[in-house]
C-alpha cells in the first residue's frame, strides 16, 4: 500500500505529465536527448535521480519492478531505489528478470533477453556523448542538428593510434538508425549489441535534465571503422555458475591477490546455479 502522504510513485501529476510528454517525444526521435525539467529527488545526483523520475512517470499500479546496479539486485543503490518505489508506489518488486515488467538499471543490461512486455530504464550520468570532446552545449547541439560527428571518429582513431585498439570499454558511442549519436550510458561495450531488443528502452539523466529513448528493434550501431566492433569481456567462465557467455566482474578474494571472475548479473548467476550449473570456485 502507498503511504497516505505520497502521491502514487512520489511525483506530482503535473511533473509526471511533463516527463511523459518528454518520453513520447524521445520515442518519436530515437537517440535525441529531450530536455526536461528534472526535479529534486530525495537522493543525491549520481544515484539515479533521472532513472527514478522516468520510472515514476512510467510505472502503473499493476507493474512488477526490478532495480539493478552494475547487474546486482543487492547493492546499496538498487536496494534503496527498490525500497523507495515500494514505499511511494506500493507496487510489487522482484529480483527475477523474467518476472519484472519495468527494470531500472545502472550500467548493465540483464543477460537474459528481454521480451516485448518489458521496459528497461537506464540511469544516465552524462547523456551527451560529445561532452568530453566539446564542453559547450550550444556547440554540441549544433553538431547533433548537423550530424557532425567527425570529432568522435577522431577520438576513436586516437585511441587506436595510442593503444593499438579502441580503449573505450564502457559507454561506447552508438549511432541510432543512422541518425543521432547516442551515449548508451556507462554499460560495458559487451552489452552494446544487446541494445537492439524487443523491449522499450528509456534513458533518464537527472542532473543533466535529459530524457531519451529507443523503441523496440531500433537499429543501434556501435561507431567503428573497418575493423569490427569488439564487445570484449574477461576471458574466463564465471567462477560460480560456469557461464561462458556472461559479462564478468573481477573480485579480489584475499590479501595475496588471488581473484575470481563472477557474473555481474546476479539474477542470471543465481538462476543458473539453481538449475545445477557449477563453476570452478563454487563452494
Amino acid at each position: 500500500m502507498t503511504e497516505e502522504a505520497y502521491n502514487f510513485a512520489y511525483l506530482n501529476e503535473q511533473t509526471k505529465r511533463m516527463i511523459r510528454r518528454a518520453i513520447l517525444k524521445g520515442l518519436a526521435t530515437p537517440g535525441y536527448q529531450v530536455p526536461f525539467a528534472s526535479r529534486e529527488m530525495p537522493m543525491p545526483y549520481g544515484w539515479g535521480t533521472g532513472g527514478v523520475q522516468v520510472s515514476a512517470a512510467t510505472l502503473t499500479p499493476e507493474d512488477t519492478f526490478k532495480v539493478i546496479d552494475q547487474g546486482a539486485d543487492d547493492t546499496t543503490n538498487a536496494v534503496s531505489i527498490r525500497k523507495f518505489v515500494e514505499r511511494t508506489a506500493g507496487i510489487a518488486t522482484t529480483t527475477k528478470t523474467s518476472d519484472a515488467k519495468v527494470i531500472q538499471t545502472r550500467h548493465r543490461i540483464p543477460e537474459a533477453p528481454l521480451t516485448e512486455d518489458q521496459i528497461l530504464i537506464y540511469q544516465v550520468p552524462i547523456p551527451e556523448p560529445l561532452r568530453f570532446l566539446e564542453p559547450r552545449e550550444t556547440e554540441t547541439r549544433k553538431m547533433h542538428s548537423r550530424e557532425d560527428y567527425g570529432l568522435m571518429h577522431v577520438k576513436l582513431y586516437e585511441d587506436i593510434a595510442q593503444h593499438g585498439h579502441i580503449a573505450t570499454p564502457y559507454a561506447y558511442p552508438v549511432r541510432v538508425e543512422g541518425r543521432y549519436l547516442m551515449d548508451p550510458s556507462p554499460i560495458p561495450k559487451f552489452d552494446t549489441p544487446k541494445m537492439e531488443m524487443a523491449a522499450i528502452q528509456l534513458f533518464g539523466a537527472g542532473r543533466e535534465q535529459r530524457i531519451y529513448a529507443l523503441p523496440p528493434y531500433t537499429k543501434v550501431t556501435p561507431l567503428d571503422f573497418e575493423d569490427p566492433f569488439d564487445p570484449s569481456k574477461a576471458p574466463h567462465p564465471c567462477g560460480l555458475c560456469g557461464a561462458e557467455d556472461a559479462y564478468l566482474d573481477e573480485v579480489i578474494t584475499d590479501d595475496t591477490g588471488r581473484r575470481m571472475f563472477v557474473c555481474s548479473d546476479t539474477d542470471y548467476c543465481e538462476t543458473r546455479r539453481e538449475a545445477g550449473h557449477r563453476g570452478k570456485d563454487a563452494a
Binding site: K16, L24, L27, T58, T60, P61
Partner: peptide
C-alpha cells in the same frame, strides 16, 4: 487521476513505441 493517468500513459507510450 494518479493511477488512471499512469494506465493511459502506458497505453499511449506502448502505441508510440510500437
Amino acid at each position: 487521476p494518479a493511477r488512471e493517468a499512469a494506465m493511459v500513459f502506458r497505453d499511449i507510450m506502448t502505441a508510440m513505441a510500437r
